[in-house]
Every structure is written in C-alpha cells, then in structure tokens.
Amino acid sequence: MDKVSIAIDGPAGAGKSTIAKKIAEAKKILYIDTGAMYRAITLKLLNNNVSLKNNEVILETLESTGIEFKEGSIYLDGINVDQEIRRPEINKNVSEVAAIPCVRKVLVNIQRKIAENNSVIMDGRDIGTRVLPFAKYKFFLTASVDERAKRRYIELKKNGYEQSYEEVAEEISKRDKMDTERKLDPLRKAEDAILVDTTGKTIDEVIDTIIEKIDTI
C-alpha cells in the first residue's frame, strides 16, 4: 500500500497534537509530534546550559542527541520526556530554538525520512509548507488567542505548573509573533491546506471534520 502523509499545521494551543494523535489511532498510522521534537532539543540545550546563540555547540549537541517515538511518547536519549517538555521554561524558549537553522535542518531531515518509510500524520508549524509539501492531505488548525491561552493554562495547571492566565496569553501572543515572523520556514497556511477554526469546538467535532475531509477528498 502506498504511504500516505497527513500534514497538520497551526499556532500554539490550536489543538494540533491532541487531534493528530487521535486521528492516527483511528486511521492506524504513525503520529509524529514535530513540536515535541523541538521541545526535546530545547530541553537538552537548557539542561546543558548551552547558549542559544552558540551554533557550534548547538550542532555538536544535536549530533549526540537521540530522539525516538514509542507508543505515542517521546524519548530523549532513551528517557521519556513527555512531562518535562511541557514545562513553562520550555514554552518560553522553544520558538527561539525552532528558529535556529541548524536545528531545523537536522529535524526536518529526520521527519522526512520517517514519512518516506511510514504512513504518517505529522503536526507542527511548517509541515505542509516545508517538511511534507507533497502531503496528500493538509490542514491548518487555528483558534482565537483567548481560546488557545485557556487550553494551555488548563494543561499547565493539570500538570502541576503554576502560571497565571495572563502570563500564558502573553506567551502565546509572543510565540505567534516569533513563529510567523521568523525568516526560516515561518508559520503560514499552505495554499492547498484546509482551514479548520477550532474555536468553540470540542476535540471530537474537529476530529470528525478532518476525518470527513480525508474520506471524501
């Protein structure tokens, strides 16, 4: 059977990861959370006190880093980091790390190789425009800043992190600005992507919308 690729892009808090993971389960294909990959690299750089301006050390760190997905979880150098990569300090730094050219080059190559060998659903900021420009199905998920901030605030609180809603909303707005204005592979909707506004919608409603499109295209 031919390999099928589904690209889901959108800003922070739009529901990409949750929705992509459930669609992967429904369609029995591999789910790749590219945002988690950038978060994992961010975690390692911060833990090793690597300056985000030192490209030489960043590249050396990348070359000695292992990232794997197992049963829906991400492993950094063999250790499950599902919870650690959701810490507030990762949220604050991941957009800057994701804008570093050598980081993007290495991770994009990994992501493409995975898609060459598997049917995948992949979510991120530039999947439909850069990573998998020839994906059969492309979607761009969005939601209001208020809605996305509420979702992220609830997620952080659930995981035991104390951060005010106002701080989360400001952080979301800053990430939007960084992601859309960065020079390399900025966040934007692919011309052939289907726009899905998740504001006010439940996860199941969004999933039904996307699966219906996949089954009818």
Rank of each mutant, 00 (worst) to 15 (best):
G124C: 06
R125W: 00
D126Y: 00
I127C: 08
I127P: 00
G128N: 03
G128T: 06
T129Q: 05
T129S: 12
T129P: 06
T129K: 03
R130A: 12
L132F: 06
L132K: 02
F134V: 09
F134S: 11
A135K: 00
K136E: 13
K136D: 12
K138L: 08
K138S: 08
F139Q: 04
F139D: 01
L141D: 02
L141I: 06
T142P: 01
A143V: 06
A143K: 01
S144E: 12
V145S: 10
V145M: 05
V145Y: 05
V145H: 01
D146M: 11
E147G: 06
R148C: 10
R148A: 02
R148V: 05
R148G: 03
A149Y: 02
A149H: 05
K150V: 12
R151G: 09
R151V: 10
R152A: 01
R152I: 05
R152M: 05
Y153C: 09
I154A: 15
I154Q: 13
I154S: 12
E155F: 03
L156C: 02
L156M: 13
N159Y: 10
N159W: 09
N159H: 14
N159L: 15
G160C: 13
G160W: 02
G160E: 06
E162T: 14
E162P: 03
Q163M: 15
E166T: 13
E166D: 15
E167Q: 15
E167G: 08
A169K: 15
E170L: 11
E171Y: 07
E171I: 11
I172N: 01
I172G: 00
S173H: 04
K174H: 09
R175L: 05
D176G: 09
K177M: 11
K177H: 14
K177I: 07
K177F: 14
M178T: 13
D179P: 08
D179A: 04
T180I: 12
R182H: 08
R182W: 11
R182G: 05
K183M: 07
D185I: 06
P186D: 08
P186Q: 07
